[in-house]
Lab assay of single mutants.
Amino acid sequence: MTYKLILNGKTLKGETTTEAVDAATAEKVFKQYANDNGVDGEWTYDDATKTFTVTE
Results as ranks from 00 to 15, higher is better:
M1D: 15
M1S: 14
M1Q: 14
M1C: 05
T2P: 07
T2V: 11
Y3P: 00
Y3H: 03
Y3L: 01
K4W: 10
K4G: 03
K4H: 10
K4Y: 14
L5Q: 00
L5K: 00
L5G: 01
I6S: 04
I6L: 09
I6Q: 06
I6M: 07
L7A: 03
L7C: 06
N8T: 10
N8K: 10
G9V: 07
G9I: 11
K10Q: 13
K10T: 15
K10C: 07
T11I: 14
T11M: 14
T11N: 11
T11D: 15
L12E: 10
L12A: 09
L12M: 13
L12G: 14
G14M: 11
G14N: 09
G14A: 14
E15I: 06
E15N: 04
T16M: 13
T16C: 06
T16R: 11
T16I: 11
T17F: 12
T17A: 08
T17K: 12
T18K: 04
T18W: 07
T18E: 04
T18V: 11
E19Q: 13
E19V: 12
E19S: 14
E19T: 14
A20P: 01
A20N: 03
A20F: 04
A20V: 05
V21A: 07
V21Q: 07
V21C: 05
V21N: 15
D22Q: 04
D22Y: 04
D22M: 04
D22A: 03
D22C: 04
A23E: 08
A23D: 08
A23K: 15
A23Y: 11
A24S: 07
A24P: 11
A24K: 08
A24F: 09
T25V: 09
T25F: 13
T25G: 09
A26G: 02
A26V: 03
A26Q: 01
E27H: 12
K28W: 13
K28T: 12
K28L: 14
V29L: 14
V29Q: 09
V29P: 01
V29C: 05
F30G: 00
F30P: 00
F30K: 00
F30H: 01
F30Y: 02
F30L: 06
K31P: 00
K31A: 07
K31S: 05
K31V: 08
Q32G: 07
Q32F: 06
Q32T: 09
Q32P: 02
Q32K: 15
Y33I: 10
Y33M: 06
Y33D: 02
Y33E: 02
Y33L: 06
Y33Q: 03
A34V: 08
A34D: 00
A34C: 06
A34H: 01
N35K: 12
N35F: 15
N35V: 13
N35E: 13
D36A: 10
D36C: 05
N37S: 09
N37Q: 11
N37M: 10
N37K: 14
N37P: 01
G38S: 08
G38A: 09
V39W: 09
V39Q: 04
V39Y: 08
V39F: 15
V39G: 02
D40W: 08
D40P: 04
D40K: 12
D40A: 13
D40G: 10
D40V: 13
D40Y: 08
D40I: 13
G41D: 02
G41M: 02
G41Y: 03
E42G: 07
E42W: 09
E42M: 06
W43D: 00
Y45P: 00
D46H: 10
D46N: 10
D46Q: 06
D47A: 14
D47Q: 14
A48V: 15
A48P: 07
A48D: 14
T49V: 07
K50C: 05
K50W: 08
T51N: 02
T51D: 01
T51L: 05
F52E: 00
T53L: 08
T53E: 06
V54P: 00
T55K: 06
T55P: 01
T55G: 05
T55S: 14
T55I: 08
E56C: 04
E56T: 05
